[in-house]
Simulated assay, not measured.
Amino acid sequence: MWFAGTVILGALCVAGAVVTLMRVRGEVRFKTYDEVNVVQQLMVWSAQKLSGREGQRLAAKASTLSSDQIVALQSISRDDLAALAPFIDEWIAGHLPPQNLPAEYEDFRPRTLLGFKQRLQSKGLWPER
């Protein structure tokens, strides 16, 4: 029985170390799967709007986000957030591509991004322009 407890304690220590490392590296963590999914969609869309290496970099980073992974371990860099901030504001304002759902479904993406932005602003992580 003590072995299982030791394994669980070890796993928690490793997870804590990973989260601490992400904070040190300046990573912005996601809180919900909706945040991950919406930011991933935004990254793909904004990559098409940006030219050159910046667009390619965002497209590559978008492919690393997945709703199949643990939310707390997914993040984007502060540099990526700074590049995405104008697009986030654009989507919050309602200037976003149509969602791939029937019209009767509410488009939750602006609300999700607004919550994401407000959370990061309250923690002092939102990029200054």
Rank of each mutant, 00 (worst) to 15 (best):
Q56T: 05
G52K: 12
A85I: 07
S51I: 03
E128R: 08
D68F: 11
K61G: 14
E90Q: 11
V71L: 12
A103Q: 09
E90C: 15
L120R: 05
A62W: 01
D79R: 14
P102A: 12
A60V: 04
H95S: 11
L73E: 01
K61C: 11
W126T: 05
L73V: 03
L58H: 02
A72F: 04
V71Y: 00
E104R: 02
Q118W: 00
L81H: 10
G115E: 07
G94L: 01
E104I: 02
E54N: 05
P110R: 06
E54W: 06
S77T: 14
R57V: 15
K123I: 03
A72Q: 09
L125I: 10
T112H: 13
L114D: 04
G94V: 01
R119E: 14
I92Y: 04
S63F: 08
R109W: 00
T112D: 09
G124T: 09
T64I: 06
L65S: 03
A83K: 05
S67E: 02
F108R: 14
P86V: 05
L50M: 14
S51Y: 06
L114C: 15
L113P: 00
K61F: 10
H95F: 10
P110L: 07
T64S: 12
D80N: 04
F116E: 01
L84D: 14
I76A: 11
L114P: 00
K61H: 12
Q48K: 13
P110A: 08
E106K: 07
D80Y: 00
R57F: 11
S66G: 07
L96G: 11
P127Y: 00
P102G: 13
Q118M: 13
L73I: 03
G55K: 04
Q121Y: 00
F108Q: 14
D68W: 00
E104C: 15
L114T: 00
T112A: 06
S66I: 03
L114G: 10
L50G: 04
R109P: 04
A72D: 08
Y105K: 02
A83S: 08
